[in-house]
Amino acid sequence: MNTSGASPEFLLDRNEAVPQLVGRHEDFLIVAGLAGTARDLTFLSRDAPHVFALAGAMGATTSMGLGLALARPERRVLVITGDGELLMNVGTLATAAVMNPPNLAIVCVDNGRYGETGWQKSHTSLGVDLEQMAIGAGIRTTRLVTRPEQIPEASRLIRDGNGASFVLMRVKPTESPPHKRDLDPATERLRFRAALPD
């Protein structure tokens, strides 16, 4: 926890750190938050069908991942979202902790900003610590990643965790890849379902 009064460290380059943390994206069913993380993951996966990326319903990413994890206990489910999106429905961390599915990992790529709307500071630039909120919500396994050497261990955790896990990765407030994707959620839904037979 940042008790020193110093600014939190937002130093990692997301265009390097996110691909390193996620690693083989095919290892997961993925729900990606709005804007930054949605572009990170659709670019990384080349619009693969096992990535459902939101472009609205801000705050729904974690609950979608929870429903998916409960429905598919044999698959690893990765929720990857930004600080603004997670803050909008942060209580979902408590619901995820209570259900505690062994196959769910939640990653928050925290740049401390609302990048889509003019780079205004979010609460995480102003003293709010989402890892501590995850701990307080009851998530038993959490990590804070602010330096490159911390990424490999966190990358293993999101694959091997035996309960809902949470990784807070702080990054510089810079652009995600300029990736154009199909924003139609019905297309995404049908594609995701077709690639995941019952």
Binding site: L29, V31, F52, A57, G59, A60, T61, T62, S63, M64, G65, L66, G67, L68, A69, L70, A71, R72, N89, G91, T92, A94, T95, R189, F192, R193, L196, D198
Partner: peptide, 17 residues
């Protein structure tokens, strides 16, 4: 914790069949 979580949850459940 709040009802809208359930909307996301059910959408995720559907994605998983």
């Amino acid at each position: 914790t709040t009802e809208e979580e359930g909307v996301g949850l059910l959408a995720g459940a559907h994605l998983g069949g």
